[in-house]
């Protein structure tokens, strides 16, 4: 899933519903979020990402994050998110790790 724009409280609900729709209706279990075109994230946006990780965990699913711009990564690092969720350079790396697992 490729995200763009600003992840704050005004976009959080839509993002949550979109990802949950994929998980609940389509049975998707590996969610890859490409953040290349995300310009801004705050704790509302991070909350949605962490919430999806928590939702996928008991389902045996995985959340992966790729292409994080440096200024966005700084915020994520401060939140401790990279200690919990796997970050990848790009989508290819994220797919690769899924194989054989």
């Amino acid at each position: 899933m490729r995200l763009d724009g600003e992840l704050d409280m005004s976009t959080a609900n839509m993002l949550r519903q979109t990802i949950d729709g994929e998980i609940d209706k389509r049975g998707i279990r590996t969610v890859i979020l490409n953040l290349q075109n995300v310009q801004f994230v705050d704790s509302s946006g991070l909350g949605v990402i962490l919430g999806r990780y928590k939702k996928l965990l008991p389902l045996g699913g995985k959340l992966k994050i790729t292409n994080v711009p440096p200024h966005i990564y700084k915020i994520m690092e401060l939140s401790g998110l990279p200690k919990i969720i796997n970050f990848y350079l790009d989508e290819a790396h994220a797919y690769e790790e899924g194989r054989g697992a």
């Binding site: 949550r16 704790s43 509302s44 991070l46 909350g47 949605v48 962490l50 919430g51 401060l78 939140s79």
Partner: peptide, 8 residues
């Protein structure tokens, strides 16, 4: 659903 990081 929120991280409690606002003040941090």
């Amino acid at each position: 659903e929120r991280m409690g990081l606002g003040f941090v």
